[in-house]
């Protein structure tokens, strides 16, 4: 791996390489360059995950044509696919060294071992949503219970915007969550559940289920479950698997033919809680 990266840097395949290196006893993201080639020997696969692709987008903001190499776990690759699709990175300018993020249970679905939240306390288990639950268990709660549990979770929100900031596929120049008309500035708790719903809706066709948001949440809100639901609906409705479907983004009319003819509306499946 190290030799490959060195070779790429030397022959100009890439200008920089994003990987990890130990700094002050912490494994940190590190940008390797041709100028300091021997540092590549210190390249390591960090047990901690950072969104290297987000750093890459910041780099291309400065230098649009820079060629970037990076270590890519499965989640990084999925994020890259999404960023290519939404025109935020040019796939021609990105090279990856794919790493197997072992130990990984279901790598293909991104359900890797990093994504096993800590066991939650008894109180949260009683009144909130256990981060370790499977989506179907959460959906099994009855209507009022669902509402109570989710609102308990959302009300904890301290509006740190960490979920958005850490998100590898959040790239908007100005975030709707900062638009006063949608989410009022000032009040804490944020407009429940508008803040989280808006974010959930914007995750459609973007969320690659990396779990970084949940890991970054100081209040342990089970965001992954929420966005898993988003992904599931996107899959059901648009037949689109975010991060692995590399064709058109789901919210595009191109999937249907572009015409202005009124089309018969296909009956969609009945909403389960009606």
């Amino acid at each position: 791996m190290n030799n490959k990266v060195k070779a790429w840097l030397e022959d100009g395949t890439i200008d920089v390489f994003l990987g990890y290196k130990e700094v002050d006893h912490h494994p940190l993201p590190y940008c390797f360059t041709k100028e300091r080639l021997d540092e590549v020997d210190d390249l390591l696969l960090s047990p901690a995950r950072y969104s290297l692709e987000k750093i890459a987008t910041h780099m291309t903001d400065e230098e649009p044509d820079i060629k970037i190499g990076m270590l890519a776990r499965d989640c990084n690759s999925r994020a890259l696919n999404v960023l290519y699709l939404w025109n935020q990175l040019n796939p021609d300018n990105v090279r990856t060294v794919n790493v197997n993020c072992c130990p990984s249970r279901l790598k293909e679905h991104g359900d890797c071992s990093y994504l096993e939240p800590e066991t939650v306390g008894a109180y949260k288990r009683r009144v909130g949503v256990d981060n370790n639950l499977a989506l179907k268990d959460v959906e099994a709660y009855d209507e009022t219970e669902r509402l109570d549990r989710w609102m308990y979770e959302f009300q904890k929100c301290i509006k740190c915007y960490g979920c958005r900031n850490i998100c590898p596929v959040c790239f908007c120049k100005e975030c709707s969550l900062e638009h006063d008309e949608l989410v009022r500035t000032g009040p804490l708790l944020p407009d429940v559940p508008v803040f989280h719903m808006v974010r959930a809706v914007h995750m459609a066709g973007r969320c690659i289920d990396c779990g970084l948001c949940e890991a970054a949440c100081p209040m342990d809100i089970p965001l992954r479950l929420l966005y898993q639901k988003v992904n599931q609906i996107v899959m059901d409705l648009f037949d689109y698997k975010t991060g692995t479907s590399v064709e058109q983004p789901p919210f595009s009319i191109l999937g249907d033919t572009v015409t202005l003819e009124p089309k018969p509306i296909e009956p969609l499946k009945v909403i389960n809680n009606e």
Binding site: P64, W86, N87, Q88, F171, C172, K173, E174, Q248, P249, F251, S252, I253, L254, V258, T259, L260
Partner: peptide
């Protein structure tokens, strides 16, 4: 243009092909 992050989503949904992408300004 200040808010546009150039994700092309609008171009894909425009039924009148009225939106184009300015490569210089992204």
């Amino acid at each position: 243009a200040e808010l546009c992050s150039g994700c092309l989503a609008c171009i894909n949904v425009c039924p009148y092909i009225a939106i184009s992408f300015n490569d210089d300004k992204q």
